[in-house]
Simulated assay, not measured.
Amino acid sequence: MKYCAFLRGVNVKGTNMKMAEVCEVFSNAGMENVSSVLASGNIIFSSNQNAEALKIILEKAMSEHFNYEAFLFIKSKEEVERFWNSNPFDKNENLHIYAFVGHNEVETVLMKEFENAAKTEGEEAKIVNGIFYWQVPKGNTLDSTFGKILGRKNLKDQFTSRNSNTFEKILKKINS
């Protein structure tokens, strides 16, 4: 089965790693047809194991190899397609659209935080098919109140996010 692993916190805040080396760690952990998409920690691979088992195996392998506490989320090819197809927002050159990959029910935690945060003009969030989507004006992602909430340590093992453009690139590669 084809999967994509979404690593959290890769190549930010001092956690630097080359994607070729990450792919090598995945291969050494028994994954097949391993490749990366962008430098933000999107690893496509094949395995006969289920996502829960893969999460445990790969977090352990990454933590040991890179000497950090690895958090990653495994989604099947079909689940990745759902992230792309469920996007409720129209493309707009002035806005970023993010989808959040995480544990079950993380979307409700994120929506509660979003609803309590101050918002900028054009900032919006929706849950579609159990997926949390956030639209924010370009240049405001990290400065927005919600963006700052997303960086809290107590949330770091709960989710990671990707720009909608990243999902498009992942899908092109996973389907090739």
Score class of each variant (00 low, 15 high):
138 K>M: 02
31 M>F: 02
7 L>D: 06
158 Q>C: 08
162 R>D: 08
31 M>D: 00
138 K>H: 00
3 Y>Q: 07
156 K>F: 00
67 N>W: 02
159 F>C: 04
21 E>S: 15
51 A>W: 02
66 F>S: 13
80 V>S: 12
19 M>S: 11
108 T>A: 10
29 A>Y: 12
161 S>Y: 12
142 L>M: 09
122 G>S: 01
19 M>L: 14
166 T>C: 08
133 Y>W: 02
30 G>F: 03
33 N>F: 11
38 L>A: 05
128 V>A: 10
10 V>G: 01
2 K>C: 05
33 N>C: 07
155 L>G: 03
120 T>M: 04
146 F>G: 05
40 S>F: 09
97 I>E: 03
99 A>Y: 01
155 L>F: 10
60 K>C: 06
10 V>W: 03
102 G>A: 09
83 F>N: 04
147 G>S: 08
33 N>K: 15
120 T>I: 01
80 V>I: 15
111 M>C: 01
80 V>H: 12
52 E>K: 14
153 K>F: 00
79 E>I: 02
29 A>P: 09
95 L>P: 02
89 F>W: 03
165 N>T: 11
98 Y>P: 03
115 E>T: 10
122 G>R: 04
70 A>F: 10
30 G>V: 04
173 K>Q: 15
54 L>C: 01
43 I>S: 09
170 I>Q: 12
14 G>A: 07
52 E>M: 06
127 I>E: 06
77 K>H: 13
103 H>L: 14
163 N>T: 03
16 N>M: 05
167 F>A: 06
28 N>P: 08
139 G>M: 05
159 F>P: 11
26 F>C: 10
42 N>A: 13
79 E>M: 12
57 I>F: 01
132 F>A: 04
18 K>C: 06
104 N>T: 08
145 T>E: 14
89 F>S: 10
38 L>K: 10
175 N>R: 14
84 W>L: 15
24 E>I: 11
17 M>S: 15
164 S>R: 10
85 N>V: 06
79 E>H: 04
17 M>D: 11
44 I>K: 13
28 N>K: 15
142 L>C: 03
77 K>G: 07
73 F>S: 04
66 F>N: 13
149 I>V: 12
52 E>P: 00
6 F>Q: 13
86 S>I: 03
21 E>R: 15
120 T>D: 03
94 N>H: 06
61 A>C: 12
27 S>F: 05
50 N>W: 00
125 A>H: 02
